[in-house]
Structures are given as structure tokens and as C-alpha cells.
């Protein structure tokens, strides 16, 4: 598979659309566990990203530049918890994709590995803390197991998303240990973590995107 910069930009546009649809749901989860703004924050951030995509980045050829600009744009538009987390992901991914006008299977693998490692490093959360790490870490394990290998990226990534989904769902039965909801104790049980959910949605959107690419 070859992802051009234009494709890459299309993917990020699809994330903006997806977030607009899921905004209320993400807020709903955050109302139960935190301060209720996760959907709003994601929406503000991705609207700002979309602006960039349609303007400064419209004719950008460097995939790395696209990703790191998205990171900084998202960060400056939202702050919040997810600002630094996702921004660090996009910045680390941006380094991997730097100077590339096309991304190969191996590039994409590296991109998402770098992305997830960035989030992990920034947040210092562990699996079981009831955060987006519960989604991202299982995906990372799949990706790393195949890193540098020869398997088709779409296939590997599709496995990664399956694990990510399981991870996301596992947060429902976790007691929160980090972030706003960590003071809830037992009362955090029964609700899926909003950040774990948005992280899954971002990965799943990439899978959808490459599936469509492959079919086209």
C-alpha cells in the first residue's frame, strides 16, 4: 500500500467528520467520569486541524509536516489533557514521516508505533489505569510484534484495531487511577473511558480509510 500526502490529508479530514458525529457520545461518557468536555475538546481540536488541512496544508507534500502541524494545531486549539497526549503522538509520528511524500506499509507501521509511544511517554499512564492507554497499548503490541516484517500492513493494523477495541471495552470494568475520574473510586465502574474511546475511534477510522483505499 502507498499512502500519498493527499491521502493522508483525506484521512485526517475523515477524523474531523467522525469526531463531529461522536462528539455528544464522548461528552456523555466524560460527564459520567469527568468534566463532560471530551467531545467538545475533540471537536474544537479537529475543527482547528480541518482549517489547517484546507488552507496551509492544502498543497503540502510532506507527510511529516502534515502530521506535526496537526499535532501543534490540535495542541494549541485545545490544551486540556488530550491536547498534549494526541499532539505528542502526531509530533512523534511526524518525525517518522518527515520528508516523505508517500508512506509505505513499513512507514505506516512505524508511524503508529511512534504515535502510540509518544502518547505513552507524555501521559505516563499504565494499562489498567482506565485511560486511552488501555486502547493504545494492545494495538502497539500487535504493531511491534510485526514491526519491520513482511506482513501486509492493512492486515496487521486490522488486528491491532481488534485488540484496541477490546482494550477500550475493558475500561468499562476498571476503576480509574489517573486523570479527573481517578477520584471516583468504585463509582468509575461501569462507564467506558472517554479518552480510550476517542483513541479507538481514531485508529478505527484509519482502518476504514485504508480499507477503502485498498478497494479503490
Amino acid at each position: 500500500m502507498h499512502i500519498t500526502t493527499a491521502d493522508f490529508i483525506d484521512y485526517f479530514k475523515s477524523v474531523t467528520e467522525m469526531i463531529e458525529k461522536e462528539k455528544d457520545y464522548l461528552c456523555e461518557l466524560d460527564r459520567k467520569l469527568g468534566d463532560g468536555d471530551h467531545g467538545v475538546t475533540m471537536s474544537i481540536g479537529w475543527q482547528a486541524v480541518n482549517q489547517k488541512l484546507n488552507n496551509e496544508l492544502a498543497n503540502e507534500s510532506d507527510c511529516g509536516k502534515v502530521s506535526s502541524t496537526i499535532g501543534m494545531t490540535f495542541l494549541n486549539a485545545v490544551g486540556s489533557s488530550v491536547g498534549p497526549l494526541y499532539a505528542t503522538g502526531f509530533l512523534r509520528g511526524g518525525k517518522v514521516a518527515s520528508q516523505k511524500s508517500e508512506l509505505t506499509d513499513r512507514d505506516l507501521e512505524e508511524y503508529w508505533i511512534a504515535f502510540i509511544n509518544g502518547v505513552k511517554e507524555r501521559g505516563q499512564a499504565k494499562v489498567g489505569d482506565k485511560t486511552m492507554i488501555d486502547t493504545l497499548e494492545p494495538a502497539l503490541i500487535v504493531l511491534q510484534a510485526n514491526a519491520g516484517g513482511t506482513r501486509n500492513f492493512a492486515e496487521v493494523f486490522s488486528e491491532a484495531v481488534i485488540e484496541a477495541e477490546k482494550g477500550m471495552k475493558s475500561t468499562t470494568n476498571l476503576i480509574s487511577k489517573i486523570g479527573r475520574s481517578s477520584r471516583l473510586g468504585e463509582r468509575s465502574l461501569g462507564v467506558q473511558d472517554p479518552g480510550a474511546t476517542s483513541a479507538y475511534l481514531i485508529l478505527a477510522a484509519f482502518l476504514d480509510f485504508i480499507k477503502i483505499k485498498t478497494l479503490a
Binding site: C27, R31, G34, G36, G39, S43, R180, S181, R183
Partner: peptide, 27 residues
Amino acid sequence: SLPQTGKPSFEIGDDEMEIGLGHHGEP
């Protein structure tokens, strides 16, 4: 309620209070 959602930040009964509430509506 956040202006963007208009939804109440937490659920609470007409005769209830939330002890130890955070100042973003965290339970």
C-alpha cells in the same frame, strides 16, 4: 452545563446533594 452541549454536567435528584464535588462537576 457546557455552552456547547447544554447538558447538565452531572445527574442529581431534586432532593440530593453531591458531597465532595469537584469544581468541574466531577463526581
